[in-house]
Design a protein around this nucleic acid. Structure first.
Lengths: 231, 231
DNA sequence: AAGAAAACTGGACCGCGGTCCGTTTGGGAT
DNA sequence: ATCCCAAACGGACCGCGGTCCAGTTTTCTT
């Protein structure tokens, strides 16, 4: 089984929404190549409708914000039946995730094969620092969409992109903190970068991004028991 | 204004759901006395209905789990109109929170005036350790209810009980880590105790509670830059 | 005791996420 | 060109959370 499914029940004739930004199970090996690559020959009409839907969704986001993206509205705007939207994207968060797919893919690529310190080549602690700063930047950029794309509480942690990022953190932590429980620590670090938390701190508390950045560097220093970089 | 409201719009004649497990704004001063104390004279029929509703909800939880607690079902089981449920509890999470209110209140009392190390009297680092262990125990006990009672992503961090607990952590951290950003660090520590995360780790990953406990002790040690207690 | 204001009630109503299933269509096989 | 069926379609349908408001009940005032 190549994909981790997003849906609770996946009846055979519904092979699974292809575009649910699935990740290969290889993600833990850092060989994840992303979802679309293996999207195996979508039927012509299906591909057409998929494009229509994404375009319509994008327009709706631009016009009414992420909250305005109702499944019905997207379907109507794309001149497509509601069932089609669900068949293609599984559920609302799947659709939103597909909208964020491009950015996600770029980010993953930067981690796996981009220039250091984000990509390989730099010492792990430095990569940890860079990771957080990049995540902060990206999340704050796309706050509303990211927030709306957050899956329900019980699926949040099995959500493929998140699993990938957390796995990456765990990898770096294994190198930087060999004596620690890198699984648990990776969850802790991920939580600092949680979209809902960022939203709360920036929008509701008015906290400046710079403070969040410093907080991250400090947290990494404490967790790895190193000294923070010179300010 | 004594209470932090839970609802987006609170028309004057709807004074606000009293039982939304509201917390006084004094919470940051550690003087929070909880919601029911000041519940100012509920009308006789309203009190009767409130009791009926809570009892019905409790029964439904016992019978069908937290997922079975639909607002309509509770209303029907209590022989009460749907509108009444919403007037009283604001929304679904308000109702669930009311169910957890007793436990919550007990926990807060233990923090404010219970015996050390959970209550005052022990050194801050020890209190931090005890706090996490107690939270872990409680959250794992009531996992399904706590999970269902989790508010939507954009309200999670303004949710009163959580604010109180986080404030408490921040207080301890200010003492234990005077040079750090105790606000941000408190968010980090709270995140480790997040119900959804705990659910994922215990139920979905099968992680034993003991490991979570050790993870907490280790995290506290790193964050406070102290040595973990002897195992 | 009576009347008026305030608080409460309940169920009709709405919108949205998600499912179902009868119908249509694309595209490989013959 | 024809046939065939898996794949895709689409919209009726469902359940639930949440709102609204006309009508009822309680409590306060005099």
């Amino acid at each position: 089984m190549l994909y981790a499914g997003f849906m609770s029940t996946a009846p055979p004739p519904l092979p699974r929404p292809e575009d649910a930004v699935g990740q290969s199970e290889l993600e833990l090996l850092q060989l994840d190549t992303g979802p679309v690559v293996d999207e195996p020959c979508l039927r012509a009409d299906a591909a057409r409708n998929r494009a229509r839907l994404l375009e319509a969704a994008e327009r709706l986001v631009a016009e009414h914000g992420a909250a305005g993206v109702t499944m019905e509205a997207v379907a109507a705007a794309a001149c497509v039946g509601k069932g089609t939207v669900f068949r293609r994207f599984g559920d609302r968060t799947g659709l939103l995730a597909a909208l964020l797919d491009h950015s996600e893919r770029k980010f993953q690529a930067a981690l796996l094969s981009g220039p250091p310190p984000l990509g390989p080549g730099a010492p792990p602690v430095e990569r940890l620092r860079a990771f957080g700063c990049a995540m902060l930047r990206r999340s704050i950029d796309e706050l509303d969409l990211q927030l709306a794309a957050e899956p329900s509480a019980d699926r949040r942690h099995t959500f493929a992109p998140r699993r990938f990022l957390r796995g990456h953190l765990a990898l770096l932590l294994r190198q930087a903190v060999p004596e620690g429980d890198s699984e648990l620590l990776s969850h802790t670090l991920m939580a600092y970068l949680d979209v809902a938390l960022l939203h709360h701190l920036t929008e509701q508390c008015g906290m400046p991004a710079e403070r969040l950045r410093e907080g991250w560097l400090d947290l990494v220093a404490r967790v790895t028991r190193t000294e923070p970089p010179a300010a």
